[in-house]
Nucleic acid binder design. Structure first.
Lengths: 213, 213
DNA sequence: TCTCCTTCTTAAGGTTTCCCTAAGCTGACA
DNA sequence: TGTCAGCTTAGGGAAACCTTAAGAAGGAGA
């Protein structure tokens, strides 16, 4: 059922999709055909998803791989990235998010830069990892950049604290502190107070215009 | 002829349409005016559609672009998406489909393709956690938002006090007070008295128009 | 190896927002 | 006209968030 939805969604997003229902079939397909990218569910029957990934990288096949993993299987995600996965998405997943990340992966694989993100007077260049405000360069630390990147990719949409922390800290899930708040604070200091809106009790959202007083 | 039909159809669907007949004219129009969305035929005369798209994205213009492409020009479609097109439709196309996709694109341009709940002049966007009344933003507190969300999800259906409280307060933290009434009151103050109808002895209901006498 | 420097996290107030409570009031229904 | 469900109002207090500062951790360069 999960596969059905995923296939339908990605097809609608403009991809040609081959859906292999177990690890063995996936290996068989990957040995004979060439794909732009692979979406790999780590909970595959017959042959474990991680072993498929390991096998693929063992052949020096650089096809971009996006892994799908359950929220409570943190160690799988870490192992997946270690084995050469390019990105991951947590289940239950959002179709738009998968489509967007796939597109980014395929772009990168072709050596094409990801498009610049713009919101108001802020501009973020993922390839150069640079940010400008009103045309003027702004220096951000790595964490600040990643956080801003996430927010801009989801502009006008509330991101929960949980989501942000999960994306920001791939390995160490339990960041039991207000680190996020501190980074938000630094971003606001550098980019202006209007860019990032607090949604009390939920999270944060990047948005262009301030609300009507 | 294709353009004629498209313009007529989109106009009828409620859009204000400017029809530029070649790539150069399109670039000229796009440099001076601002559009809610662009429908781009890749087979334009004078200046190729893809080059128009490339030019547009080169200026960091994020206007949604829907490309029209012939069924046998698959690679154009792929290039178009890579260059930053937001969606595509194959020729020969279906007018309703184009209209539907345009609607989705325009919405997405201001906050992802999230389903928006609408009732009368009230619109609620769960992704942005925003509410508008007659197009004008209304600021709600978290509790107010959640309550309105519940009511709109069950529009024209009576929700008992009990149901509402259970949903609002993580499993029956039995709020032994009139807190619910207070929030209802605040909502009515912000959104007008007609939206939420009291069903005496039972609960509340969101509904569009006042009852017939 | 040592030192300097950047960056990230932690922690501790300070501040703002919001939510419940409670008490008086209003209007519906008998 | 009495009663009761729901409406209205305002303030205390707590949770959520902001701000600041300092210590840890890591890396670069000598």
């Amino acid at each position: 059922m999960l596969g059905d939805g995923l296939k339908a969604g990605l097809t609608q997003a403009g991809y040609a999709v081959d859906w292999l229902r177990d690890g063995e079939a996936a290996v068989a397909a990957l040995s004979t055909e060439s794909f732009a990218a692979v979406v790999l569910d780590l909970g595959l029957p017959k042959r474990d998803g991680l072993s498929v990934l390991q096998w693929l990288r063992g052949r020096h096949d650089a096809t971009p791989v996006l892994i799908l993993t359950a929220r409570d299987r943190l160690e799988d995600r870490v192992r997946g990235l270690d084995l050469g996965a390019d990105d991951y998405v947590l289940k239950p997943f959002d179709l738009d998010e998968i489509a967007a990340r796939l597109r980014a992966l395929v772009r990168r694989a072709h050596g094409r830069p990801e498009p610049v993100l713009t919101l108001g007077e802020i501009e973020l260049n993922p390839a150069a990892r640079s940010v400008t405000r009103g045309g003027q360069a702004v220096e951000l630390t790595p964490r600040e950049f990643d956080l801003l990147h996430l927010l801009l990719q989801n502009a006008d949409r509330v991101l929960t604290r949980r989501t942000l922390e999960e994306q920001l800290y791939t390995w160490n899930d339990a960041v039991d502190s207000n680190a996020l708040e501190v980074h938000i604070h630094h971003l606001r200091k550098k980019l202006g107070n209007d860019l990032i809106r607090t949604v009390r009790g939920v999270g944060y959202m990047a948005t262009m215009s301030a609300p009507a007083a």
